[in-house]
Simulated scan of single mutants.
Amino acid sequence: MPTDPAPLELGYSFCPNDTFIFYALQAGRIATPAPIREVLSDVQTLNDWAAAGRLPLTKISYRAYFGVMDRYVALRSGGALGRGVGPLVVARAPIDDLNGRRVASPGRLTTAELLLRLAWPDAIPVQMRFDEVMPAVERGEYGGEPLDAGLIIHESRFTYPQHGLVRVRDMGEWWEGETGLPLPLGAILVRRDLPLELQQAAQQAVRESIAYAWAHPQEAKGYIRQHALEMDDAVMQAHIDLYVNEYSEDVGDTGERAVRELHRRAVAVGALSPSDLPLFVPQ
C-alpha cells in the first residue's frame, strides 16, 4: 500500500499578514503536495533557523534570504513587497541625520537594518527584538547606553504615536524615491534540495491559500485573532490590508526587479557576496 507523504513544516510569523495568507494551508482548505504543519515563531528566529536549513518552507526577510541563497530559493507567492509598506525610523524628537547615531534595530538580518545602512552608512544599529524597539526609544536608552532613534516594523507602524514618538523617515518612501520600485520585505522560501515539482506545487498552494483568504475573509479571523496577541481588530485589519497585496499573489516582473536591485545594493555596500543563483522558483 502507498504511504501518505510526510508532513511539510512551514515556518511563519504571528503577524496578521502571515496568518491570513497561510490560514487555508494549515486548515486543510486547499490541496497541498503534502500535509502542512505550521511552525510559528518570530522573524528573527525564522531567520536563524533558515541559516541552519531547519525548515523545508519558511518565511524570512529578504535581507536574510540573500545570505542563505545557496540553501533556499524564494517562492513567487506569499511574500511581503509593496509601496507604502516600509519600516519607519522614529524618535522622541525630529532628527535630520542618523550618521553616528545609535539606532534600535529589529535584527541584523532584517531588511529594515539593510535600508538603514544604505541610507545612513555611519548609523550605529543596536539589535533587539522588534517589540522592544519602541519602549527603548521612548526611554532613550537600551542596556544602559543612550539611544537616539529606532527602526519599527509590523504593527508598530500604526501604534508609535501612542509612545510619544515622531516619524523621522519612512524607509519605504526613501527606497521608492531612490529606485522607483516597490520595497521587498519578506519572502517565502523553499529548500533548493527539494524536487522542482514539489517547489512548484508549494508555490501554487500558497497562491491558492491567498485566493481562499481573500474569498473567505471572515473564516480566517479566528485564527488570525488567536495569534495577534494584544493587537486590536482595527490594527489587525490594517496590517493585512497593507502587507497582503498584488505582490503577495505573485511578485511579477516589477517585484523581481525590486528584489534584484535590493540584492545589488546590498552587495555594493559589502553586506553580502555576489550570487548568480536564481532568486525565484520558476513558474
Rank of each mutant, 00 (worst) to 15 (best):
P56A: 09
R225Y: 10
R83L: 11
R129A: 15
A80R: 02
P33S: 15
E145N: 13
R264Y: 10
T32G: 04
A201G: 14
Q218I: 05
T254E: 15
N47R: 12
T58Y: 03
E249K: 13
S275F: 12
P278L: 11
P182T: 07
P121D: 06
E246M: 09
L10K: 01
L55N: 06
A104W: 03
N47Y: 08
V235P: 08
L194S: 06
P7R: 06
L116V: 07
A228Y: 01
I152P: 02
L147P: 05
L183Y: 08
R102W: 06
S77D: 01
L279D: 02
H227T: 05
Y223R: 11
F280P: 02
N245K: 12
E141D: 15
L75T: 08
M171T: 02
G164C: 07
R265N: 14
E178Q: 12
G180E: 09
R71T: 13
V126C: 08
L114E: 02
P7W: 05
D18E: 12
V133W: 00
S13C: 15
E197V: 11
L98E: 00
S273Q: 14
V168A: 08
A64D: 05
A228M: 03
V168T: 10
L40N: 09
S13A: 13
Q203I: 06
R260C: 14
D122I: 11
M231D: 04
H239W: 10
G84N: 04
F280T: 03
P274T: 10
T179V: 10
M1I: 10
W120S: 05
Q200R: 15
A64M: 07
H154G: 12
R264H: 15
A268K: 07
L165G: 00
L229E: 15
V206M: 11
T159S: 15
V206Y: 04
A51V: 02
V137S: 00
G140T: 08
